[in-house]
Protein backbone atom coordinates (compact mmCIF):
# COMPACT_ATOMS: atom_id res chain seq x y z
CA UNK A 1 0.00 0.00 0.00
CA UNK A 2 1.43 3.30 -1.07
CA UNK A 3 -1.31 5.47 0.42
CA UNK A 4 -1.00 5.84 4.17
CA UNK A 5 -4.06 8.10 4.43
CA UNK A 6 -7.11 7.74 2.21
CA UNK A 7 -9.88 10.19 3.11
CA UNK A 8 -13.15 9.71 1.27
CA UNK A 9 -15.88 12.35 1.33
CA UNK A 10 -15.19 13.34 4.91
CA UNK A 11 -17.82 15.59 6.48
CA UNK A 12 -18.32 16.87 9.96
CA UNK A 13 -21.29 18.86 11.22
CA UNK A 14 -21.08 20.81 14.45
CA UNK A 15 -23.90 22.41 16.40
CA UNK A 16 -23.96 25.92 17.71
CA UNK A 17 -26.50 26.47 20.44
CA UNK A 18 -27.95 29.78 19.58
CA UNK A 19 -29.18 31.35 22.79
CA UNK A 20 -27.26 29.41 25.42
CA UNK A 21 -23.64 28.89 26.28
CA UNK A 22 -24.35 25.21 26.82
CA UNK A 23 -27.34 23.03 27.16
CA UNK A 24 -28.57 21.78 30.48
CA UNK A 25 -30.77 18.84 31.31
CA UNK A 26 -33.46 21.33 32.30
CA UNK A 27 -33.33 22.85 28.83
CA UNK A 28 -33.81 19.46 27.24
CA UNK A 29 -36.82 18.73 29.43
CA UNK A 30 -38.24 22.22 28.97
CA UNK A 31 -37.76 22.13 25.20
CA UNK A 32 -39.38 18.73 25.07
CA UNK A 33 -42.52 19.94 26.82
CA UNK A 34 -42.77 23.31 25.11
CA UNK A 35 -42.17 21.61 21.77
CA UNK A 36 -39.70 24.25 20.64
CA UNK A 37 -38.60 23.48 17.07
CA UNK A 38 -35.06 22.16 17.14
CA UNK A 39 -33.72 24.25 14.30
CA UNK A 40 -34.40 27.48 16.18
CA UNK A 41 -32.29 26.38 19.10
CA UNK A 42 -29.51 24.66 17.26
CA UNK A 43 -27.67 26.06 14.29
CA UNK A 44 -25.67 23.48 12.38
CA UNK A 45 -22.65 24.16 10.24
CA UNK A 46 -20.24 22.17 8.14
CA UNK A 47 -16.87 22.10 9.83
CA UNK A 48 -15.82 19.82 6.98
CA UNK A 49 -17.72 19.08 3.82
CA UNK A 50 -16.93 16.32 1.35
CA UNK A 51 -13.19 16.37 1.76
CA UNK A 52 -11.35 13.66 -0.16
CA UNK A 53 -7.62 13.19 -0.63
CA UNK A 54 -4.88 10.58 -0.42
CA UNK A 55 -1.46 10.97 1.11
CA UNK A 56 1.48 8.76 0.22
CA UNK A 57 4.08 7.32 2.53
CA UNK A 58 6.84 9.81 3.34
CA UNK A 59 4.99 12.91 2.17
CA UNK A 60 5.15 16.08 4.20
CA UNK A 61 1.88 17.94 3.79
CA UNK A 62 1.02 21.40 5.06
CA UNK A 63 -2.60 22.29 5.77
CA UNK A 64 -3.51 25.95 5.49
CA UNK A 65 -6.72 27.90 5.95
CA UNK A 66 -8.23 30.74 7.93
CA UNK A 67 -9.25 30.38 11.57
CA UNK A 68 -12.33 28.17 11.68
CA UNK A 69 -11.81 26.80 8.19
CA UNK A 70 -11.77 23.20 9.43
CA UNK A 71 -8.06 22.40 9.68
CA UNK A 72 -8.17 21.31 13.30
CA UNK A 73 -11.37 19.34 12.74
CA UNK A 74 -9.64 17.46 9.94
CA UNK A 75 -6.63 16.68 12.14
CA UNK A 76 -8.93 15.62 14.97
CA UNK A 77 -10.65 13.11 12.70
CA UNK A 78 -7.34 11.84 11.30
CA UNK A 79 -5.98 11.36 14.80
CA UNK A 80 -9.29 9.71 15.81
CA UNK A 81 -10.12 12.15 18.59
CA UNK A 82 -13.51 12.67 17.00
CA UNK A 83 -15.45 10.75 14.38
CA UNK A 84 -16.70 12.17 11.08
CA UNK A 85 -20.43 12.75 10.58
CA UNK A 86 -20.12 10.93 7.28
CA UNK A 87 -17.40 9.67 5.00
CA UNK A 88 -14.41 7.61 6.05
CA UNK A 89 -10.64 7.57 6.48
CA UNK A 90 -8.41 4.58 5.94
CA UNK A 91 -5.20 4.85 7.92
CA UNK A 92 -2.21 2.59 7.37
CA UNK A 93 -0.04 2.58 10.43
CA UNK A 94 0.14 4.22 13.81
CA UNK A 95 -0.70 7.89 14.19
CA UNK A 96 1.14 10.14 16.62
CA UNK A 97 -0.59 13.47 17.03
CA UNK A 98 0.07 16.72 18.77
CA UNK A 99 -3.13 18.74 18.76
CA UNK A 100 -3.32 22.27 20.21
CA UNK A 101 -1.46 23.30 23.31
CA UNK A 102 -1.12 21.26 26.46
CA UNK A 103 -1.20 17.97 24.57
CA UNK A 104 -3.10 16.08 27.22
CA UNK A 105 -0.74 16.24 30.14
CA UNK A 106 -1.89 15.53 33.66
CA UNK A 107 -1.16 18.64 35.73
CA UNK A 108 -0.42 16.78 38.99
CA UNK A 109 2.05 14.33 37.49
CA UNK A 110 5.71 15.15 36.96
CA UNK A 111 7.24 15.72 33.54
CA UNK A 112 8.78 12.26 33.65
CA UNK A 113 5.49 10.57 34.61
CA UNK A 114 3.73 12.51 31.88
CA UNK A 115 6.27 11.34 29.30
CA UNK A 116 5.37 7.76 30.19
CA UNK A 117 1.63 8.48 30.16
CA UNK A 118 1.71 10.41 26.90
CA UNK A 119 4.08 8.14 25.00
CA UNK A 120 2.11 5.08 26.08
CA UNK A 121 -1.09 6.66 24.79
CA UNK A 122 0.76 7.24 21.51
CA UNK A 123 1.40 3.50 21.40
CA UNK A 124 4.98 3.24 22.63
CA UNK A 125 5.92 0.38 24.99
CA UNK A 126 7.70 0.79 28.29
CA UNK A 127 11.08 -0.52 27.17
CA UNK A 128 11.28 1.81 24.21
CA UNK A 129 10.19 4.82 26.31
CA UNK A 130 13.00 4.03 28.76
CA UNK A 131 15.39 3.96 25.84
CA UNK A 132 14.19 7.29 24.47
CA UNK A 133 13.45 9.25 27.61
CA UNK A 134 16.83 10.95 27.83
CA UNK A 135 16.62 12.06 24.22
CA UNK A 136 13.11 13.42 24.85
CA UNK A 137 14.11 15.35 27.96
CA UNK A 138 17.18 16.65 26.21
CA UNK A 139 15.22 17.75 23.16
CA UNK A 140 12.65 19.58 25.29
CA UNK A 141 15.49 21.20 27.25
CA UNK A 142 13.80 20.83 30.63
CA UNK A 143 16.27 18.70 32.63
CA UNK A 144 15.89 20.80 35.78
CA UNK A 145 12.11 20.55 35.80
CA UNK A 146 11.60 16.98 34.74
CA UNK A 147 10.63 15.79 38.24
CA UNK A 148 8.31 18.69 39.06
CA UNK A 149 4.57 18.52 38.38
CA UNK A 150 3.53 19.77 34.94
CA UNK A 151 1.29 22.43 36.48
CA UNK A 152 4.46 24.35 37.41
CA UNK A 153 5.66 24.41 33.78
CA UNK A 154 5.36 27.47 31.62
CA UNK A 155 3.24 27.04 28.51
CA UNK A 156 6.39 27.10 26.38
CA UNK A 157 7.90 24.27 28.37
CA UNK A 158 4.72 22.22 27.98
CA UNK A 159 4.70 22.77 24.25
CA UNK A 160 8.35 21.78 23.99
CA UNK A 161 7.80 18.62 25.98
CA UNK A 162 4.70 17.78 23.90
CA UNK A 163 6.58 18.14 20.65
CA UNK A 164 9.57 16.24 22.01
CA UNK A 165 7.36 13.26 22.87
CA UNK A 166 5.31 13.23 19.67
CA UNK A 167 8.42 13.51 17.52
CA UNK A 168 10.28 10.72 19.30
CA UNK A 169 7.62 7.99 19.17
CA UNK A 170 7.59 5.52 16.32
CA UNK A 171 4.25 6.36 14.64
CA UNK A 172 4.21 6.05 10.86
CA UNK A 173 2.11 9.21 10.63
CA UNK A 174 2.90 12.37 12.58
CA UNK A 175 0.20 15.01 12.92
CA UNK A 176 1.16 18.41 14.29
CA UNK A 177 -1.31 21.21 14.88
CA UNK A 178 0.01 24.74 15.21
CA UNK A 179 2.79 24.03 17.63
CA UNK A 180 5.92 25.24 15.99
CA UNK A 181 4.73 28.82 15.73
CA UNK A 182 4.28 29.07 19.48
CA UNK A 183 7.83 28.31 20.52
CA UNK A 184 10.68 30.82 20.52
CA UNK A 185 13.05 31.21 17.59
CA UNK A 186 15.58 28.58 18.69
CA UNK A 187 12.94 26.02 19.37
CA UNK A 188 11.30 26.68 16.02
CA UNK A 189 14.59 25.99 14.29
CA UNK A 190 15.01 22.82 16.28
CA UNK A 191 11.48 21.65 15.41
CA UNK A 192 11.97 22.35 11.73
CA UNK A 193 15.18 20.34 11.71
CA UNK A 194 13.51 17.48 13.59
CA UNK A 195 10.52 17.40 11.25
CA UNK A 196 12.83 17.31 8.23
CA UNK A 197 14.75 14.46 9.79
CA UNK A 198 11.53 12.52 10.48
CA UNK A 199 10.36 13.15 6.95
CA UNK A 200 13.64 11.85 5.54
CA UNK A 201 13.26 8.64 7.54
CA UNK A 202 10.21 7.88 5.39
CA UNK A 203 7.46 8.79 7.82
CA UNK A 204 4.44 10.83 6.80
CA UNK A 205 3.86 14.28 8.27
CA UNK A 206 0.77 16.48 8.39
CA UNK A 207 1.32 19.96 9.62
CA UNK A 208 -1.05 22.81 10.36
CA UNK A 209 0.59 26.18 10.65
CA UNK A 210 -0.21 29.83 10.25
CA UNK A 211 3.44 30.46 9.72
CA UNK A 212 3.89 30.33 5.96
CA UNK A 213 7.67 30.28 6.25
CA UNK A 214 7.52 26.99 8.14
CA UNK A 215 5.21 25.54 5.51
CA UNK A 216 7.50 26.63 2.66
CA UNK A 217 10.54 25.34 4.48
CA UNK A 218 9.17 21.93 5.44
CA UNK A 219 6.30 20.89 3.19
CA UNK A 220 6.27 19.54 -0.34
CA UNK A 221 2.50 19.72 -0.73
CA UNK A 222 -0.26 21.98 0.53
CA UNK A 223 -3.93 21.36 1.23
CA UNK A 224 -5.91 24.59 1.42
CA UNK A 225 -9.16 24.39 3.33
CA UNK A 226 -11.82 27.07 3.30
CA UNK A 227 -15.31 26.85 4.81
CA UNK A 228 -14.76 23.19 5.50
CA UNK A 229 -14.01 22.39 1.88
CA UNK A 230 -10.80 21.42 0.20
CA UNK A 231 -10.24 24.24 -2.28
CA UNK A 232 -6.72 23.46 -3.34
CA UNK A 233 -4.43 20.43 -3.25
CA UNK A 234 -1.11 21.09 -4.95
CA UNK A 235 2.60 20.45 -4.87
CA UNK A 236 3.25 24.00 -5.96
CA UNK A 237 3.70 25.32 -2.43
CA UNK A 238 4.44 29.03 -3.13
CA UNK A 239 1.48 29.32 -5.50
CA UNK A 240 -0.88 27.64 -2.97
CA UNK A 241 0.27 29.98 -0.23
CA UNK A 242 -0.26 32.97 -2.49
CA UNK A 243 -3.85 31.96 -3.26
CA UNK A 244 -4.44 31.30 0.41
CA UNK A 245 -3.28 34.79 1.33
CA UNK A 246 -5.65 36.26 -1.27
CA UNK A 247 -8.67 34.34 0.02
CA UNK A 248 -10.92 36.61 2.10
CA UNK A 249 -12.24 35.50 5.50
CA UNK A 250 -15.30 33.35 4.83
CA UNK A 251 -18.45 33.05 6.94
CA UNK A 252 -19.51 29.74 8.50
CA UNK A 253 -20.77 27.19 6.05
CA UNK A 254 -24.26 26.68 7.50
CA UNK A 255 -26.23 23.50 6.89
Amino acid sequence: MRHVITATRLSKIYNIHVDRAFRTFRDTIADFFTNTPKDILVQKFWALKDVSFTIDRGECVGIVGRNGAGKSTLLKILSRVTRPTSGQVLLQGRVASLLELGTGFHPELTGRENIFLNATILGEDKASIRRKIDAIIDFAGIEEFIDSPIKRYSSGMQTRLGFAIASHVDGEILIIDEVISTGDFDFREKCTRKIREISKSGRTILLVSHNNDSITEICSRVLHISQGQLVQDTRDVPQALATYLDTPVAPLNKV
Binding site: S79, V95, S97, L99, F105, H106
Partner: peptide, 9 residues
Protein backbone atom coordinates in the same frame (compact mmCIF):
# COMPACT_ATOMS: atom_id res chain seq x y z
CA UNK B 1 -11.44 16.21 29.07
CA UNK B 2 -8.01 17.80 28.62
CA UNK B 3 -6.58 14.46 27.52
CA UNK B 4 -9.39 12.90 25.53
CA UNK B 5 -9.97 15.99 23.40
CA UNK B 6 -6.35 16.04 22.30
CA UNK B 7 -5.21 12.50 21.93
CA UNK B 8 -6.89 9.22 21.03
CA UNK B 9 -6.97 5.99 22.97
Amino acid sequence: AHIITRIYF
